[in-house]
Computed example of a mutant assay.
Amino acid sequence: MTKPVVKLSHIYKQYGDNHALRDVSFDLQPGEFVALVGMSGGGKSTLLRLIAQLELPTAGTIEYADENLVTRVMFQDGRLLPWMTTLNNVSFASHDAKVQARAQKTLAAVGLAGFEQTYPTELSGGQKQRLALARALMADPELLLLDEPLGALDALTRRNMQSFITKICDDSHLTTLLITHDVDEAARMANRVIVVKNGRAVYETAGAKGQTPETVARVADQVLKVILAPDEEAKEGERLG
């Protein structure tokens, strides 16, 4: 059996009296695109921060396929540097010729060839997120963590970016974890969808990436039913689909 890129076992996270995560276990397989979906405050972003090693769990273990696993995070706000050009945002203003060449190649890969000397404030919302993605890809990561990266985009740009990101990740066989509250987005982009609710992973199903709109709608609908179900009906939700 293939070794997971990341494996979480019985994860708990507590902030004072607040139990943010309770007994969460799942893994990410090589090349897999997994979506964590649920309401705000349910624990999704906390899980991402733990996987990114920005925080430590209160209890439980997180195992990585490689102790030097290259991981990058793409946030909703992009975390772009407005005083730098797009090229320097990706190369971090390196003067090394090889780094500059790789940065230009990465910008071209995300559709920003010709924008090297443009500043982030001159880009559209979709272009800014492409730039943020390019900066994440610059490190040639083995694991990409997406923290609601498309939440601020208009509906059409968001749909285009969903297709663009999944293609980039598929083409590079990149293991990806998406955090989102949008059930349609989760169903459309992921191989596997996990519902996180009140700090627990309560439901898991196959995603509908690359499948028909009808299949996407069916998966999104069953996931939404689990999210909206009263807590005592969580077990019932696990039998959906």
Rank of each mutant, 00 (worst) to 15 (best):
residue 97 A to W: 09
residue 125 G to W: 01
residue 181 H to G: 03
residue 134 A to F: 12
residue 168 I to M: 11
residue 167 K to W: 09
residue 163 S to C: 04
residue 122 E to R: 15
residue 132 A to P: 01
residue 100 Q to D: 08
residue 193 V to Y: 06
residue 150 L to F: 14
residue 136 A to R: 01
residue 178 L to Y: 04
residue 124 S to T: 13
residue 128 K to E: 03
residue 133 L to K: 05
residue 122 E to W: 10
residue 196 V to I: 15
residue 124 S to Y: 13
residue 165 I to F: 06
residue 193 V to L: 07
residue 146 L to N: 02
residue 106 T to K: 04
residue 95 H to P: 02
residue 145 L to Y: 04
residue 173 H to K: 13
residue 117 Q to V: 09
residue 164 F to Y: 10
residue 153 L to S: 02
residue 93 A to W: 08
residue 156 L to Q: 12
residue 104 Q to L: 14
residue 93 A to Q: 14
residue 150 L to S: 00
residue 194 I to A: 11
residue 160 N to E: 12
residue 190 A to Q: 05
residue 155 A to H: 06
residue 189 M to L: 11
residue 195 V to Q: 11
residue 159 R to N: 04
residue 128 K to H: 05
residue 156 L to Y: 09
residue 142 E to D: 13
residue 108 A to L: 01
residue 117 Q to D: 15
residue 127 Q to D: 07
residue 104 Q to Y: 08
residue 118 T to W: 08
residue 117 Q to R: 14
residue 168 I to Q: 04
residue 126 G to W: 02
residue 114 G to D: 05
residue 124 S to V: 04
residue 163 S to G: 13
residue 173 H to V: 06
residue 161 M to W: 02
residue 179 I to S: 14
residue 116 E to R: 06
residue 181 H to F: 14
residue 141 P to Q: 10
residue 129 Q to K: 10
residue 154 D to Y: 05
residue 97 A to V: 08
residue 194 I to Q: 10
residue 154 D to V: 00
residue 136 A to T: 15
residue 198 N to R: 15
residue 158 R to E: 00
residue 104 Q to T: 05
residue 168 I to N: 00
residue 137 L to M: 14
residue 137 L to I: 13
residue 176 T to C: 10
residue 171 D to C: 11
residue 96 D to I: 03
residue 144 L to D: 05
residue 114 G to M: 04
residue 118 T to F: 11
residue 192 R to M: 10
residue 161 M to V: 02
residue 109 A to I: 00
residue 104 Q to A: 15
residue 173 H to N: 15
residue 97 A to C: 07
residue 141 P to V: 03
residue 101 A to F: 07
residue 142 E to N: 15
residue 143 L to K: 05
residue 125 G to K: 01
residue 138 M to L: 13
residue 198 N to A: 14
residue 95 H to R: 15
residue 100 Q to F: 03
residue 158 R to A: 02
residue 153 L to R: 00
residue 96 D to V: 07
residue 169 C to L: 12
residue 171 D to P: 13
residue 106 T to C: 10
residue 152 A to F: 07
residue 195 V to H: 13
residue 105 K to V: 01
residue 194 I to S: 11
residue 111 G to I: 04
residue 108 A to H: 03
residue 165 I to Y: 02
residue 123 L to G: 02
